[in-house]
Design a protein around this nucleic acid. Structure first.
Length: 1030
RNA sequence: GGGCUCGUAGCUUAGGCUGGUUGGAGCGCUCGGCUGAUAACCGAGAGGUCCGGAGUUCAAAUCUCCGCGGGCCCA
């Protein structure tokens, strides 16, 4: 049988290794095959949360990519059919802003002047600008995903599916037109996204005024107040919004009072009395008398005189008091001025109470014509005038300054206005119970999100403001008749064709985006008039939320190559970072609930963020974003991956440190490599062939059974960890096994078993065991560190198969085509593991005793005594007493005996299994024989060191010459056979080798001090023989 | 400003749900040893107000509340 294994270098370049593996996967189409070979098996459905490739991938993206990869590889190995379609999110304001920057323009007006056609062309081009970088990074970290046929949100087919879904929602009456109060920059003429708003909060001083709203006489008459006028005292920091006042709000449960102050009667919350009337600044101190006390809701319905009559209020009641829970008693008067055009809550309150709407301000932040005296002036500039007016009319109760944070435009610095715009909504509020019920069916990791952040969000869900007055996005598929005002929602390209008016050269465009789609005019089925599309595009979160069906072009294509929407719904698993809770995690659930009333995913893993080494968020502006490519090229993908998996729970933030990655490479990957290197090195020397011998595990040495027991336990724990997404736990269990159990104990303890030159049963057991452990370990680790495991597998398993005629063991060609190991319960031996644990503890104790006594391990000792109050512990230790004997280098181990006299014994105690104390007595007395043996072991050590200095092969033979001290010389003579065996010396000769003499011989020589005596040793390498060891 | 979450040695962290001996470990540091044991290994040691405060309890790193700091989301 030919030698199956390829020789390895002790030093390994992980980066080169990984590049080799990448090529192998490419040429063997390993990824595709890993999916195909599971075709017909149970599906594990995954949806890729689509990134946008208009910027370089960030470390956070890398984290999500390797987490996704780990889970998907694992599930594939567990036998699931796991197709993975990549996706690209291509629409939205962020894309537009990038292009705006490029063009050096800032406003919508400028975009329109520039031309929507060209603008959108540039947007389309920009979203794949970094596609190559994304692809490279994705491949380089080993994320296996189908990037050849990704779903792309700007494709017509995708848009068509989105249109279909919106029409479904429209047909159910859930898509409606309303107003949305948006943060709006009056200078730039554009609404800002919440992200943009968040960038621009600043502390400013605004006027704070208390305004008296006169109650209507008929409402007044209810009270017994003499003839004094009654006022509702309201508070605001934006005087200009008073022009648009429609209502006043009070808290239904809190107590309000009617008080007499000077010559009038005021109504306000009792809790605010002192703050409002007894302000320290004496200027405003008022005497008051409480006339009446009542709950806020008794005020509801009260009418008051409007402050101003300029703005026309339409569609509902006006100038009434309403009750609302949001009214706070922390500031103001407990009576809140409501202007539906200028505040989100204001708008909501009006809607809920059937109050009217008025918009006295145009889109440039200037009052409209109807506000005659102020027409054309900028709202903020009108504050002063309005305050003066109120003062003149005697209804300004008091005026102060108010310091608070207020948002400003991040581009031009103007204060933002909250401003009601027409907008299209999906009535999510009406689906609230369905959302909650569907959330019930989802497993969240970490669990607290389910009823915490996400659950709370659903409880308070608002309607989804779907439309955007922008350019680059899925066009909102609603057409409105210019004659009769009828609306229709177009659900497919087919429908568009059928209803389109033939209008000269305007056909159905090849591109469904603006501006082409804007030119498509439809015939009104109602009146025969012309219907034109509304101008808006839709929120890009709706795009990505449609991924479950739109990626399959559902319902237009039922059966795709990788199956249909039906077969891929709901998804078994998605994962993204925590910031997606209200983003994609929600938009998926919202769309899916509206359309199918089903949860779109059953398991969701929310990942933490990557912070810099100081715990601060990485951002371009702070310049603390680490360069992942540099790390990949220095440390490799496996090191990065292992670091990310093992550093902490996946759902917690991680402080990213390159040091941490280097540490993982050294500690874990190198140890794994060295274990493998050890095996290959000796397997080649011994011409070991794994399939040539079969020895059942129960016939092997105890330590073999022990490591196999550990391996099976580890397998069990790793699977449990991965199934519950406790990825770090799984990784740490594996790391502990590799470093401690395998390398530091099993291999170290078994070393000598591999060095035996001749055929030997125990050696075969050792080889078989180590081979099985390494190959199983490769499979266990494959989803975590796919490169090194593949590399090792190729040599250990595949190399072996190819060298074998009449192959009885057809193994998959890649570790990633293997099944994930299953634990074999029968191989787990708790008693044996406990015994070994006791031994390890005793070894530690023995070493401590030696260290304290100043006797090195190399010096053999007569005996050691182990004492324990618990006989079963001693019994268990006795099973493995050979190991203890060997580790402590003692002739004899005795259990249960205390030394007769403690003379010469050193006592150490240690906690064994279950915290039971064990005492160990080490016999420190030396006799001549022990001394001689100690000397000889020292000699062997020096010779081995000299072999290493000469970089001799493990198998090359040498001759030894020695001279110097007599006692040492005698010991060498006495144990010559032992020395030969250890050092592969064919000849050991005493010579008068003084330093000079040796140098004359031209040999490598050194002067040593052994046992305090001077010794000269020289070695002469002999030519390598052809046989291995014989 | 609100919600959620995290905060343990110089660094990375286990433990926390279910309160109970002297709060474990790795890296780093100091001392000693070892060297065919692998960019290793072994032994000993220093280093902790378990973020701060209050409460519950016989007993708190652990449970509760209030702060402080980081992160995310919302305003």
């Amino acid at each position: 049988m030919s030698q199956p294994f390829r020789k390895e270098e002790q030093r390994v370049d992980f980066v080169r290794l990984e590049e080799e593996v990448l090529k192998l996967w490419e040429s063997e189409r390993t990824f595709e095959r890993s999916i195909e070979q599971r075709r017909g098996r149970k599906r594990f459905v995954f949806i890729e949360g689509p990134p946008t490739a208009n910027g370089l991938p960030h470390p956070g993206h890398i984290l999500t990519r390797v987490m996704k990869d780990l889970v998907l590889r694992y599930k594939t190995m567990r036998g699931f059919y796991v197709p993975r379609k990549a996706g690209w999110d291509t629409h939205g304001l962020p894309v537009e802003i990038e292009v705006e920057k490029e063009l050096g323009i800032k406003t919508k007006r400028e975009i329109e002047e520039f031309g929507i056609e060209e603008f959108n062309r540039r947007c389309r081009e920009s979203v794949f600008r970094y596609e190559k970088e994304w692809e490279n990074a994705t491949k380089r970290v080993g994320f296996w995903i189908d990037m050849d046929s990704p779903y792309i949100t700007f494709k017509n087919s995708y848009i068509e599916s989105v249109w279909w879904s919106l029409k479904e929602i429209w047909k159910r009456g859930l898509l409606y037109k309303g107003h949305k109060v948006v943060p709006f920059c009056p200078r730039c003429g554009t609404a800002l996204s919440s992200h943009e708003v968040a960038q621009g909060y600043r502390e400013v001083e605004d006027p704070s005024i208390y305004v008296m709203f006169r109650m209507k006489p008929e409402s007044e008459s209810k009270s017994e107040s003499k003839d004094l006028p009654v006022f509702l005292l309201a508070w605001t920091t934006t005087p200009w919004t008073l022009i648009g006042n429609v209502a006043l709000a009070v808290h239904p449960q809190h107590t309000y009072v009617k008080v007499r102050v000077d010559e009038c009667i005021l109504i306000l919350a009792e809790a605010r009395l002192d703050a409002v009337l007894h302000e320290d600044e004496h200027e405003y101190e008022h005497e008051y008398e409480i006339l009446e006390r009542f709950r806020g809701d008794t005020l509801a319905g009260t009418e008051y005189e409007p402050l101003f009559e300029y703005a026309k209020i339409s569609g509902g009641e006006r100038h009434k008091v309403v009750a609302a829970d949001f009214v706070s008693l922390d500031e103001g008067t407990g009576i809140v001025h409501i202007a539906p055009a200028f505040g989100e809550v204001d708008y909501e309150v009006c809607r809920a109470n059937n109050l009217g709407f008025t918009q006295p301000v145009n889109s440039e932040g200037r009052f409209t014509e109807e506000v005659t005296p102020l027409a054309g002036s900028f709202v903020k500039d009108a504050d002063r005038t309005i305050i003066e007016w109120l003062k003149e009319r005697g209804i300004l109760f008091k005026e102060e300054k108010y310091l608070h944070t207020y948002p400003f435009c991040w581009r031009c610095g103007s204060p933002l206005l909250y401003y009601a715009r027409e907008s299209w909504f999906i009535a999510m509020k009406s689906l609230r119970d369905n959302l909650i019920a569907n959330n019930e069916k989802i497993n969240w990791y970490p669990t607290h999100l389910k009823y915490g952040r996400f659950g709370n969000f659903l409880e308070n869900i608002e309607d989804w403001a779907l439309s955007r007055e922008r350019f680059w996005g899925t066009p909102l598929n609603i057409w409105v008749c210019s004659s009769c005002g009828a609306e229709c929602c177009v659900g497919s390209i087919e429908e568009l064709k059928n209803r389109a008016l033939e209008q000269g050269d305007v056909h159905i465009p090849a591109d469904l985006h603006r501006p082409y789609i804007d030119a498509v005019v439809l015939r009104c089925e109602n009146c025969g008039g012309e219907m034109r599309r509304v101008k808006e595009v839709i929120d890009c979160w709706y795009d990505s939320g449609s991924a479950p069906f739109a990626q399959w072009h559902y319902p237009f294509e039922e059966e795709g190559r990788n199956g249909s929407f039906r077969a891929n719904f709901p998804a078994d698993f998605i994962t993204e970072a925590i910031d997606q809770t209200r983003g994609w995690f929600y938009s998926l659930l919202a769309v899916s609930t509206a359309l199918f009333d089903e949860p779109p995913y059953l398991n969701v893993l929310s990942l933490g963020h990557i912070l810099d080494d100081k715990g601060v968020k990485m951002s371009k502006s702070k310049g603390n974003v680490v360069d992942i490519n540099q790390i990949l090229n220095k440390e490799g993908a496996d090191a990065l991956r292992w670091y990310l998996f093992s550093a902490g729970p996946p759902y917690e933030d991680i402080r990213f440190s390159e040091k941490g990655i280097i540490e993982k490479r050294k500690k874990f990957l190198s140890t794994l490599w060295n274990s493998y290197f050890f095996f290959v090195t000796y397997a080649i020397i011994d011409n070991f062939h794994p399939h040539a011998i079969h020895i059942p595990v129960e016939k092997r040495a105890r330590i073999d059974r022990w490591v196999i027991s550990r391996l099976n336990r580890v397998t069990k724990e790793v699977i449990a960890g991965l199934e519950s997404f406790e990825i770090h736990t799984a990784a740490r269990v594996l790391e502990d096994f590799v470093v401690n159990d395998l390398s530091n104990w099993y291999i170290r303890r078994s070393r000598r078993r591999f060095w035996i030159p001749e055929e030997n049963f125990d050696k075969d057991c050792a080889y078989l065991t180590l081979y099985e452990v390494l190959t199983t370990l490769c499979k266990l680790l494959a989803p975590f560190v796919p490169f090194i495991t593949e590399y090792i597998y190729q040599n250990l398993v595949r190399g072996c198969d190819c060298g074998c005629e009449d192959d009885q063991h057809p193994e998959p060609e890649s570790v990633h085509l293997c099944d994930y190991p299953s634990p074999v319960e029968a191989m787990i031996d708790p008693e044996l593991e406990e015994s070994m644990l006791i031994i390890i503890k005793l070894v530690e104790a023995g070493r401590r005793a030696r260290s304290e006594a100043g006797i090195k391990i190399r010096q053999p000792l007569r005996d050691v005594l182990v004492v324990c109050s618990e006989p079963s512990i001693l019994e268990k230790a006795a099973h493995l007493c050979d190991i203890l004997k060997d580790e402590l280098n003692v002739r004899e181990v005795r259990f249960g005996e205390r030394p007769v006299s403690d003379e010469g014994y050193r006592e150490v105690s240690v906690e064994g299994a279950k915290g039971i104390r064990m005492d160990l007595f080490l016999n420190t007395r030396l006799d001549e024989e022990l001394r001689a043996e100690g000397i000889v072991r020292d000699v062997v050590r020096r010779v081995q060191g000299m072999r290493k200095d000469l970089e001799l092969e493990y198998t090359s033979k040498i001759r030894i010459f020695y001279g110097g001290d007599e006692e040492v010389g005698n010991a060498i003579e006495k144990f010559a056979d032992y020395i030969s065996g250890e050092t592969l010396a064919v000849d050991i000769k005493r010579k008068r080798v003084e330093e000079a003499g040796v140098q004359q011989m031209g040999l490598y020589s050194k002067k040593w001090k052994i046992g305090g005596k001077e010794v000269y040793i020289a070695i002469e390498p002999l030519p390598q023989s052809h046989s291995n060891r014989a």
